[in-house]
Nucleic acid binder design. Structure first.
Lengths: 191, 191
DNA sequence: CGAAAATTTGACATGACTCAACTGGAGTGG
DNA sequence: CCACTCCAGTTGAGTCATGTCAAATTTTCG
C-alpha cells in the first residue's frame, strides 16, 4: 500500500508516520471488466485512484442515451465529481472497461487528511485546477469543433486507451452516434 | 480594500495581520463597458475577483466564430484558467459587458498567500472543486441537450444577467448562432 | 462452431447553419 | 424634429452535418 501512496503523492516529502496514517484510509479494490461500480441515486462520498486498468463515468440522459464524461486509466482519479463536489444526488455511473485495481478513499477521511497535511491539500488543489482547466478545454472543443475534428483530437490524446475501448464508448464521449463515428472513420481512411 | 477581502474570504477567520498582508497583493481596477482586458497570446499569470459588474471569457475559433465559456458577475473569479492552470499560452479573451470593478491578483503573489495561510488554500480548493463540477455539468449539458433545452436552462440559471447581455452573447454561450436563438425564442413564445 | 454483441451501411429525416434581406430601435447631427 | 446611420435582432430559402431506423456484416467469446 505504501508503494501505491508514493505514486499518488509523488513529489511530496511525506514522513513515514504520515504514510502510515494515509495507508489506513485507502482501501485497495479490484473490479472485473463490465462491472458497474457506481449507479446510486444518492450523494457520492468516495473517490477512486486508479492504479491499473481503465474505467469511465457516463450519464444516461432522459431519452436513454449514454454520454461518457471521463475515462480514467493509471494514475487518474475517478468519481462522480458532480455529486462529490457539489453534494448533490448522483447523476453518473462508473463502468469498468478493463479489469482494474483502484484505491478507494472516503470523502470524510480524505478531507481530514487534507487538513492534517497541508502539503497534500496543496498537491490536490493543483490537481483539481488542472482537472478543471481540462474540463473547460473539453467544453470549448464540443462547442467549437466538428465531430470529425473532435475524433481526430481524441485519437491523438487517448492513443493509449483507444485500443481497449469500444467504439460506442468513443462515440458517447464525442457526443455522436456510433453510426456517425463509423462514417467519420471511413472518411478519414479515404484521406 | 479590507472590506472587499472579507467578502472574498467570507467564512474564514483571518487575523488583522493576515488581512493587511492580503490587502497588499490585491489591486482594485475598474473597467468600462466594451473593454477587452485580456487578449494576449502569452501565459496568463493573474486572475480577477469581480466586486461589481459583468464580464465574459470567450474563445475565437479558427473560423472566427466566438464561443463564450463563462460569464462572471459579483463574487465570481475570472481569468483564462486554461492558461493560468495549465501554464499554456492564452486562448481566451475577456470582455467587459457592463462597467466592472474587480480585484486583480498575480499568480505568484496568490500562490504565496495560499502557502502562507492554509485556511485560504483550503477555501480555494473547495472553490475550484465546485468550479470544476460545474464545468463538467456544462459539458454534459452540451452533449445531452438540444439548443432549446440549453436555452431554457440558461434562462433559469442566469435570470439576473440575461437582461444585461446581448443575444449574441447568449447564443455564443449556448453554442448556436444568433439566428437559431431567435427562432428558438419565437418557438417558446408560441407555447 | 454458433449466438450475441458490435460495427457498418443505406435511405431518409431533421436540427442547426449560412447567406442575404429586412425590421426596428438608439443615437447623432443638421 | 426629422433624416441618417449603425447595430441588434428577425425572417426566409437553401444546404449540410448528424441523427434515426432498419438491415447487413463482422467480431467477440462462451
Amino acid at each position: 500500500m505504501k508503494g501505491a501512496l508514493l505514486i499518488i503523492f509523488k513529489g511530496l516529502l511525506l514522513s513515514n508516520q504520515e504514510l502510515d496514517y494515509l495507508a489506513t484510509i485507502f482501501k485497495r479494490e479490484t473490479f472485473k471488466k463490465g462491472e458497474l461500480i457506481l449507479n446510486s441515486e444518492q450523494e457520492v462520498n468516495h473517490q477512486y485512484y486508479v492504479l491499473e486498468g481503465c474505467l469511465r463515468t457516463f450519464f444516461i440522459d432522459p431519452k436513454g442515451k449514454e454520454h461518457t464524461l471521463q475515462f480514467a486509466v493509471n494514475d487518474w482519479w475517478i468519481s462522480d465529481y458532480i455529486s462529490y463536489f457539489l453534494d448533490e444526488k448522483s447523476l453518473l455511473n462508473i463502468e469498468v472497461i478493463k479489469e482494474s485495481t483502484v484505491l478507494r478513499v472516503e470523502k470524510k477521511d480524505f478531507e481530514e487528511a487534507l487538513l492534517k497535511i497541508p502539503a497534500i491539500e496543496h498537491h490536490i488543489r493543483k490537481k483539481v485546477e488542472r482537472f478543471m482547466a481540462k474540463s473547460q478545454k473539453r467544453t470549448l472543443a464540443v462547442l467549437s469543433q466538428t465531430a470529425k475534428e473532435r475524433y481526430i483530437n481524441f485519437s491523438k490524446s487517448y492513443a493509449n486507451i483507444e485500443q481497449h475501448i469500444k467504439n460506442y464508448h468513443i462515440a458517447s464521449y464525442l457526443g455522436i452516434t456510433t453510426q456517425s463515428l463509423s462514417r467519420i472513420r471511413k472518411e478519414i481512411l479515404k484521406g
